[in-house]
Nucleic acid binder design. Structure first.
Lengths: 181, 181
DNA sequence: ACCAAACTAGACCGATCGGTCTACTTTGTT
DNA sequence: AACAAAGTAGACCGATCGGTCTAGTTTGGT
């Protein structure tokens, strides 16, 4: 997971994975049919953990829906800073790299991103019902907007080696889009 | 440029480039010192063309500043659709893939993204001066927000194989952030 | 104690990677 | 016409890629 997240899929050789995990090749191919299948398993593992944490944070009853969203995104910013902007979002990274080359992985990444968007949308709808947000916008569209913006901000932060893009994204988002009606 | 944009840098072997260009290896290495140097030249070529077009579109005197920005982004959406969402933004793609692996290319991509952000910022400032936009926001921050959002929307569109993320991004952007004061 | 299944271990494979090398052809200058 | 420089052509190089194969070891059931 770490190697894929930092170097990407193609740039990470199996030998590097095996060395880091201290696992011989025979064992690897006993459990995984191919690098692609292993990649899928890594994605699955990451996605599972991530979605679980997302569900916890977005359903925290001590916060308003909008503050849950803000808290989640700010945690992401902190993590990015913690890794000196070298590690962004594994799903976005692999998506960018593999969307055109590997249909199987692309399809799975697509599903995962849609599930995230769905969670965002639910939280936005709650915010609308709580009167925190104008009900004029389609929650699903708004959720897609936030997801895209987030992925792009993380990408830009990696390129610029600075959390500034993420900070600017969050500041602008909550000052303009996610503002009380 | 086409191969890098569709397959990425690492997944594109030199042999593929040489075959497509019908150029023997000897000629290639007569003009380019390495694949990295070639990659830099490709980036340079793309960046030059792109920035030229950006300058034309963002200084069109027949449109208001905001409409120039909208026109530019909508042209991008049309191009994405034209390629069935297989080709996004070369700079963003390479940035995502190489930011952690190749400092030289990363640094150049960083510069290019900053130059784009600068162009956006100038246009936004014009819009503010023309009264099209609230002057309450820092143009540079707002420009970073748009650039991040755009890159993310294109990334998501590639993964989802649909222009919907880009359409949702633009709709939300011009309905909430880039709205008249 | 025995044995089959599960698993470990890494040498090895052909393909492909980026890059080098030498021999040859074309071009521009005088 | 002569010649040096520029450019062409692709065989070839070691390294590394993902993946295979065989031989050995550990494990769990009986």
């Amino acid at each position: 997971m770490q190697l894929f997240a930092t170097q990407g899929y193609n740039a990470t050789g199996l030998d590097a994975v095996l060395k880091q995990a201290a696992v011989p090749k025979g064992s690897f191919y006993h459990f995984f049919g191919s690098k692609e299948e292993f990649g899928l398993a890594v994605i699955e593992e990451f996605s599972g953990r991530f979605l679980a944490r997302l569900d916890v944070l977005l359903s925290d009853p001590t916060l308003t829906p909008l503050d849950r969203l803000r808290g989640f995104l700010e945690r992401g910013e902190a993590q990015l800073a913690q890794h000196q902007c070298t590690v962004g979002c594994l799903i976005g990274d692999l998506g960018q790299e593999l969307a055109a080359n590997n249909e199987r992985l692309r399809a799975r990444l697509d599903e995962i991103m849609r599930s995230w968007r769905g969670r965002f949308a639910a939280c936005i709808q709650e915010a609308q019902q709580a009167g925190e947000l104008s009900a004029a916008f389609d929650p699903e569209v708004m959720a897609g907007f936030i997801l895209s913006g987030w992925e792009g901000a993380v990408l830009t932060a990696k390129v610029m080696k600075s959390t500034q893009p993420v900070r600017d994204f969050l500041a602008t988002l909550f000052a303009t889009v996610l503002t009380k009606p």
